[in-house]
Design a protein around this nucleic acid. Sequence first.
DNA 1: CATGAATGAGCTTTCATTCAT
DNA 2: GATGAATGAAAGCTCATTCAT
Lengths: 228, 228, 228, 228
Amino acid sequence: MQTLDSLIDLCCPVQAKRERRKEARPGELLQAALALFVEKGFAATRVEEIARRAGVSKGTLFLYFASKEELFKAVVRDNIVGQLAQFAHAIDAFDGPTPVLMRSFVHGWWQHVEATNSAAISKLMISEGAQFPELAAFYRAEVIEPAQQLIARVLARGQARGEFRSVDAQYGPLVLLSSLIFLALWRNSATLAGVHDGQLDPRAYLDTLLDTCLSGLSIPPGTAPSAA
Amino acid sequence: MQTLDSLIDLCCPVQAKRERRKEARPGELLQAALALFVEKGFAATRVEEIARRAGVSKGTLFLYFASKEELFKAVVRDNIVGQLAQFAHAIDAFDGPTPVLMRSFVHGWWQHVEATNSAAISKLMISEGAQFPELAAFYRAEVIEPAQQLIARVLARGQARGEFRSVDAQYGPLVLLSSLIFLALWRNSATLAGVHDGQLDPRAYLDTLLDTCLSGLSIPPGTAPSAA
Amino acid sequence: MQTLDSLIDLCCPVQAKRERRKEARPGELLQAALALFVEKGFAATRVEEIARRAGVSKGTLFLYFASKEELFKAVVRDNIVGQLAQFAHAIDAFDGPTPVLMRSFVHGWWQHVEATNSAAISKLMISEGAQFPELAAFYRAEVIEPAQQLIARVLARGQARGEFRSVDAQYGPLVLLSSLIFLALWRNSATLAGVHDGQLDPRAYLDTLLDTCLSGLSIPPGTAPSAA
Amino acid sequence: MQTLDSLIDLCCPVQAKRERRKEARPGELLQAALALFVEKGFAATRVEEIARRAGVSKGTLFLYFASKEELFKAVVRDNIVGQLAQFAHAIDAFDGPTPVLMRSFVHGWWQHVEATNSAAISKLMISEGAQFPELAAFYRAEVIEPAQQLIARVLARGQARGEFRSVDAQYGPLVLLSSLIFLALWRNSATLAGVHDGQLDPRAYLDTLLDTCLSGLSIPPGTAPSAA
DNA sequence: CATGAATGAGCTTTCATTCAT
DNA sequence: GATGAATGAAAGCTCATTCAT
């Protein structure tokens, strides 16, 4: 049986090179724009530079995107895809102790963030999101909230299994999420990182975070609800 | 017979109007600048608008502040720098248990952040710092570093008094600071908070943070260095 | 049947209008800039006016010249620098008596100065150089020094050939150069020339200068190193 | 018998200090303005700086001079005084050989120029005179022309006494004057002088000038109209 | 489709001039 | 008279956007 994609491929055989390049244009522009918006911010990025990096002329950019703002929106839309679903599956499939799950989740998350540009996009949204309310709402609904629920699910699992003490259902996840977002920001903000950039080892930071939180979440030996 | 004016003069031996306005100018400009920087960002705010909001002309602004960047620095100094020193004093003067100190420090910090717009300024620097390196450096040196040291001092105090277990000297303070900065961002980022702004109760969030961290930092009963 | 346009195309295989204009732009701007700099001075000339006179917009000017100062330098290069090299070649190629060379050099210089506006540019630099140190340095290096060396070379040639008596190597050329610069000034300074402009015949002035200097430089008959 | 001035002094005895300072104000302002106009040019000099150097406030300056332009005119008017008459007398009184007179005249002129600010004023007139036609005309009539006639008188004297050969009556003086004006400019023009400022010894330059000109003017031994 | 020359509104900053005190 | 705070018209330069080719 063929997937939908492969059917589409059969119906629309490879177009002439020129045509194909034409179709690739928007993607190249989006990629160039993402890199530059992240690097220099929205206002400080000149459309000419985006065009140059994408290998086209300034005029061509406006053929595909009505304005610099529309280009920004397209960049964010293009990059906000739920990688989060995979994390959810992994969590559900795991069956060891929750502290171990948490450790692996946190480090796995960072691995993904490092590999993709997600941190950069978060930075972008936090920095310039105020100017684009629909995008901000979209990002919140599609990224922030699911991420929060993911952490909530892990905490709940720990409590259900008697491994964690109970924490506030709303703010507990947030305390953890905040540190993850902070790490993402730190790597993309000249102000936060500055000269100390090289000094922050993400993995060591995450370990310190995990040590503190896991101790804080663990049930004190004496207080164990155990009983006879 | 006395004129109304001369009566006023007798009753209110204030300075000449011009004089009084002159002394008020910097404050009015600072206030207007803070409001607009927060509302629209540093780059997107035009000095003319700041001046207009302060009720003066463009030229007058430059009578008091040498440049837009200097104006920003003055805003930061006016709202943050001084306060950090006060926190340092309060910490040194305190002589109760460190967990209590930490609670009072964290809540006191938030109180100040809420009263002024310091949180918004942090948001600003994270958003636009990359484009204004001098401002970013200034902010790092005058705000980020001192804040980090403040937290480090509290942690060290707890350890010295046998109240806290030892944490990584570099990342420990950062884990705490990250949550504070996150809270500041949350309140000023449409992306993070959006329309749900009202849903986050800062004080409850901070309590959750303190509960988790203080538990995580406290020395487990059994491991007590007791002796005897 | 051919359209008029296609006939024209066949007859006049010129570039597209846009293209042709593009190539003409720098020249038109240079010309406009020279005229206005001379008329109103460097500082008092607004770039917008230059652009307008060249028939383009302000922005277009900056497409071709990075700044007002660079535009000025281009004007100088366009009008003077190249010509100095030509004089040097002519001097080297000449093989008659040095007094004849000097006469032809001096009159040739004036011919060039009259044709272009180089004199006016010298006036400009003397007037405004102090306020634009970079321009002054450029002018000194590219114009004053080479001109001085040109004269020095002629004097040295005369001495080497036994036609001129020896004069101070530093001040000799300067005495001559001063008169040439003075003539340039006279023609462009309301103060020096005023309404009496018509009264000064440059060629007669230069002849008087040459007569005096050449007599002054020539070796007195009796003092001839002859011998016997 | 009393001069007019001393009579005036008797009628208007010394006023109160404050009053006297009031009368001195314009003079102090003129002095400060001259120094700054010469140093930085008209446009580049800020009225505030003039006022500060004169020890008054910006507003006070406008109490005495209607505008910056009027101040400039006043500065020039105030400084153009004919020291030239003294030179004329000295020339008439002299009874040695003309070459000696010329040497002493040229060096005396420079001594005076150095002592006063005349060179600076010449520079000022040449630089900014175009904007003030009346001043330019006045300066020409009162300074340039008389100076030219002074030189012409010396040349004529030399010819009348059989010491000089005949030169063009109009351009001969000019050739000499040009070198003197050039020297005055050199000392006040960053462009001409630049880094070599220290290298030009005015007296050596004038000697070279005199050597060349006097040789050029002297009657060749053989051609002497002597006769029996 | 693609180009890139051309545009012009917009920005920060300066400074001669005014005028309430 | 004297002050200096306040003004606002420029100026040089940038860059998103347009459109003739």
